[in-house]
Design a protein around this nucleic acid. Structure first.
Length: 937
RNA sequence: GCUCGAGUGGUGGAAUUGGUAGACACGCAGGACUUAAAAUCCUGUGGGCAGUAAUGCCCGUGCGGGUUCGAUUCCCGCCUCGAGCACCA
């Protein structure tokens, strides 16, 4: 019987489903192991070959751990709220719920084809009211808590209110937006709205003014990605920054804990660095600068208080609240112009732009130490969202300040002498202070300390730890997201909705309203729910549902609570989390934050959600382009074969993407569209029906190929279904793993898949004869066979522990080749071998287990083999004898030979002279079990 | 501009983290089987030079230095590519 993957794979998948082979119980004596994949957003394009890479790897680990005796939780679900479904609804009119359900079905079918060992009874969907009921619940918990810095944890708003009622806020030490002090008497005299406003300063979920990219023409809010040069990418309409009251999460309260938590998790150093940089902790001081002829003060933040003697100007962010008040009439117009220029540019653009721009506002600040007059500028290199939105500029010790000073002709005073520090650069916190009065001669670190003392002594500022992390904007002006369980009374006071889930109202138009309100405003009955209450119109962002989903898998159908304490106390946390590096900061930061919050609430036992995290690389595709002339000929579009494009000037043509399915030999230099491909291309874009195709002599339109992201918009998505159909799931799984290291990006290419396909056949042939009957015998194995087996066991175990799946696959090939050479049919060898491969190729393993070895299903519940060193010992070792880096000879020595014995043998060897080639021997270096190196002159 | 990665045959990639560079696979070449092709199997395959040949010599892990008996691996300086970014005071 030949190996026919399609037949056996279908058969075993059905068996596993019927027997609930992968069902996981929360009630088990075995140690737990939780393997989690980042769940996909089910887009209309379906799963492509890039998705399964991580899923296959995690499935292999899940199966491996199961075979090692762990109770393995390995679930999958869908991150089903999101913009594409909503845009599809606006364009085509299909309700997001309908298109999402259809996409989920497709994804599920495709995932099933990959032979994963998910416990599908635990599947979740973030857009299901049964799920988002709990997302809303957790949101209300954030709304109902504040961060107490004294106890360093979240505590209830009710307890805060009690304090306010008794003693005001003067002894409260909490994370808050504003720091106005009030007494108990003040508090008790406030009306409901005033109290609500004050509490918003403390709540972990709170409302504040945020800026959105508003496009009047499109009547909608745009994402940063959709804005280019202050205009919408679609349609090129103007985009302005528009203030809007929005929900935000006070993640900054957890900055320190998010930072410290990184020390206890196993993430790659690169990823930890990224998160640390994102949090951006810096120690420094806030210092107040007086203003000439004005009572206001400018609060600046600096990490270099030592350089204050070199501060020669002050820069405010264009959005800074004092700008309006301080600008003199003479500069009013210039300042207004600059503000409108700066504020309507995205932060992305502001950052990429290297030009130095700014505007003097006609006012002066007073340096609190030197008492000198400093001109005040606004510039977009100072960001309103960081620090205090104002800096003291020290052009001698800061690169950007320096450029700015040069451009605007501002005085530069050297305050740090670097002459004694050769490799020190500007801003390095090294050097000796000069021109700085009482700190002259001090080294920088010492000078910083001294100045901090002085600042506090003089009462002009305090030490402060600053974070670059900002509170997370939690509002979206969209339909397809979790509704906020919040309503407002006639005074605008916010009230939590008690009756959860608060379901999305039915709509058939998902556009914003004409007056710019979010789509939910269209559901008038829903919005104006009961006596005078109106509902929140925004919905939650995509990361709401994904911030806690891993906890729901532990107890997915619980209707009383998000998850039971029993479940979470058993499963604890995620042992291995696998997903793309694009979520390295956002998602991970938010879910770590939510987790810590829930830990404060006492509903999760661990401080960190993910013990170990591995990022998989991206699978790249091939982008195929055709050349199109910009000028039409006789009203017809002209496409020119790539091998003939050289006759045109570069500005005469442009490249447009074609679908890779139309291209022969795609990815190669000679890739082309033949007659059929051109025909498909015409049908695909009907406006080119009458286009001229300037082909080469063979009638081919040669295309341009390059490696790039696999994406629907580049028409290069490769769907795994066809590959699986042709070669089988086991082959596909092993091939994806064989491509290279998991973490590395690589282009998709099926050229090599025949190698894996051939291997599986060879592997099959170890167990089945040409007539299809099993050939396994009970004869005792030879030492050689045992060595092959145990080498494989050792290497595969090591590879699995280090996520070197490609190496493991290679090892299977080696072992199979060697055993085939030995014509090995011994059960003692072949039985462990098939268990070894089971995590990688689960179907063929099960088939062999049952039909060649006569065992009972399932192989996926047996025990993974461990190697025994005794089969690996060798009696002799061949040592290369090197002179310099050249191998002169090879000599065998007994494996147990000592360094000295080998050295003596070498020194006494009659061949020594010939190895040395007339040189003088100085030293013999023996590395046991490796090599011998002769050092000679 | 800043941060973090990565550069090894024609290609994807190995190398026990300082010890024989190129495992395994693709591709290519030659051969076997076949009327032929496909499929399958076997052999060879980093580059250069010399030799009928076995073989020998030289070069070789992006480039230039350094440390070391020995460097793909460690250090310094460059180049190229990729990813991320919120000009972080």
């Amino acid at each position: 019987m030949d190996y026919r993957p399609q037949d056996i794979e279908r058969k075993w998948r059905k068996y596993w489903e019927d027997h609930a082979t992968y069902k996981v119980s929360n009630d088990n004596d075995r140690p737990k192991y939780y393997v989690l994949d980042m769940f996909p957003y089910p887009s209309g394009a379906g799963l492509h070959v890039g998705h399964p890479l991580g899923y296959i790897a995690s499935d292999i680990i899940a199966r491996y751990k199961r075979l090692q005796g762990y109770n393995v939780l390995h679930p999958m679900g869908f991150d089903a709220f999101g913009l594409p479904a909503e845009q599809y609804a606006i364009r085509i009119g299909v309700h997001p719920e309908v298109s999402t359900a259809a996409n989920v079905k497709t994804y599920r079918k495709q995932l099933d084809n990959l032979g994963f060992s998910y416990d599908w009874s635990r599947q979740i969907n973030t857009s299901d009211p049964k799920y988002y009921k709990w997302t809303q619940t957790i949101f209300l918990k954030l709304f109902g808590h504040y961060y107490n810095k004294k106890t360093d944890k979240a505590e209830t708003i009710d307890s805060l209110i009690q304090i306010f009622e008794k003693e005001g806020n003067q002894h409260v030490h909490a994370e808050s937006t504003e720091e106005t002090i009030f007494s108990a008497q003040d508090w008790n005299s406030y009306d409901a709205k005033e109290k609500d406003d004050i509490l918003m300063n403390y709540r972990l979920a709170y409302r504040k003014i945020g800026f959105v990219n508003w496009c009047e023409e499109l009547g909608t809010v745009l994402a940063n990605d959709e804005v280019k040069d202050g205009r919408s990418e679609r349609g090129n309409h103007p985009v302005i920054k528009r203030p809007m009251m929005q929900w935000a999460l006070r993640i900054t309260a957890y900055a320190e804990r998010l930072l410290n938590g990184l020390d206890q998790v196993e993430f790659s150093e690169a990823l930890k660095t990224q998160q640390r940089n994102w949090i951006g902790r810096s120690e420094g001081a806030r210092i107040f600068f007086d203003i000439e002829d004005n009572d206001a003060k400018i609060e600046i933040f600096t990490t270099r208080p030592d350089t204050i003697f070199g501060a020669t100007f002050v820069v405010l962010a264009p959005e800074h609240e004092l700008v309006v008040q301080l600008t003199s009439t003479k500069y009013q117009n210039d300042v207004d112009a600059y503000i409108s220029y700066a504020t309507n540019r995205s932060e992305r653009e502001r950052m990429a732009d290297k030009r130095v721009t700014g505007q003097f506002i006609g006012a002066y600040a007073i340096n609190p130490i030197t008492k000198k007059k400093l001109p005040i500028y606004i510039s977009d290199y100072v960001l309103i969202g960081y620090g205090t939105g104002a800096i003291m500029a020290v052009p001698s010790d800061d690169e950007r300040d320096n450029k700015f000073a040069k451009k605007f002709g501002i005085e530069i005073i050297d305050v740090v002498d670097l002459s004694a520090f050769e490799d020190a650069k500007i801003g390095d916190k090294r050097g000796v202070m000069i021109n700085s009065d009482f700190i002259n001669g001090m080294k920088v670190p010492q000078a910083i300390d001294r100045m901090l003392e002085e600042v506090e002594k003089r009462g002009i500022g305090q030490r402060k730890v600053n974070y670059r992390l900002r509170d997370a904007n939690f509002s979206r002006q969209r339909y397809w997201g979790e509704p906020f369980p919040v309503k407002y009374d006639m005074d605008g006071v916010s009230h939590p909705e008690k009756n959860l889930p608060l379901e999305l109202p039915e709509l058939n138009n998902f556009k914003p309203t004409k007056d710019g309100k979010p789509p939910l405003a269209r559901a008038e009955e829903w919005v104006n729910s009961s006596q005078g209450f109106t509902r929140e119109l925004d919905t939650m962002p995509g990361y709401a549902g994904s911030s806690w989903y891993f906890l729901r898998y532990m107890d997915p159908s619980n209707e009383e609570e998000p998850f039971s304490q029993n479940a979470v106390n058993y499963w604890q946390d995620v042992d291995l989390y696998l997903g793309g590096a694009e979520h390295a900061v956002g998602h991970l930061m938010y879910s770590r934050f939510w987790h810590k919050f829930m830990h404060d609430l006492g509903i999760v036992p661990t401080e960190e959600p993910y013990k170990k995290l591995v990022n998989q690389g991206m699978i790249q595709g091939i982008i195929e382009d055709v050349y199109m002339l910009k000028e039409k000929q006789e009203g017809k579009t002209v496409f020119v074969s790539a091998d003939k494009i050289g006759t045109y000037q570069e500005d005469q043509y442009t490249q447009i993407h074609t679908h890779i399915d139309f291209v022969e030999d795609y990815g190669s230099e000679h890739s082309y569209m033949n007659e059929k491909g051109i025909q498909q291309f015409k049908e695909w874009i009907p406006e080119y029906e009458n286009a001229i195709f300037d082909t080469n002599d063979q009638g081919h339109l040669v295309t341009h190929s390059e490696v790039g992201k696999m994406s629907k918009s580049k028409y290069n998505v490769i769907n795994p279904d066809h590959v699986i159909e042709e070669h089988g799931t086991d082959c596909f799984r092993m091939y994806e793993m064989f491509l290279g290291p998991l973490e590395q990006s690589k282009p998709w290419d099926t050229k090599g898949i025949t190698g894996v396909s051939k291997f599986l056949r060879k592997f099959w042939n170890l167990y089945f004869g040409v007539d299809g009957s099993p050939v396994v015998t009970d004869v005792d194995p030879t030492p050689k066979e045992l060595k092959i087996l145990h080498t494989a066991i050792k290497k595969v175990n090591l590879a699995l522990d280090t996520f070197a799946f490609n190496v493991a696959v290679a090892e299977f090939m080696v072992a199979t080749r060697d055993l085939a050479k030995e014509k090995c049919t011994k059960r003692a060898i072949l039985e462990p071998l098939v268990i070894l491969i089971a995590p990688f190729a689960p179907h063929i393993a099960e088939e062999i287990w049952v039909n060649a070895l006569g065992k009972e299903a399932s192989i996926h519940h047996v025990t993974f083999p461990k190697h025994d060193e005794k089969y690996l010992v060798v009696s002799t070792h061949t040592y290369p004898i090197q002179l310099g880096k050249k191998v002169r000879a090879k000599v065998d020595f007994p494996a147990e030979a000592s360094k000295d014995e080998i050295e003596q043998a070498i020194r006494n060897s009659p061949d020594l002279d010939s190895w040395l080639q007339g040189k003088q021997l100085i030293k013999v270096i023996v590395v046991p079990k490796r090599l011998v190196n002769l050092v000679a002159k």
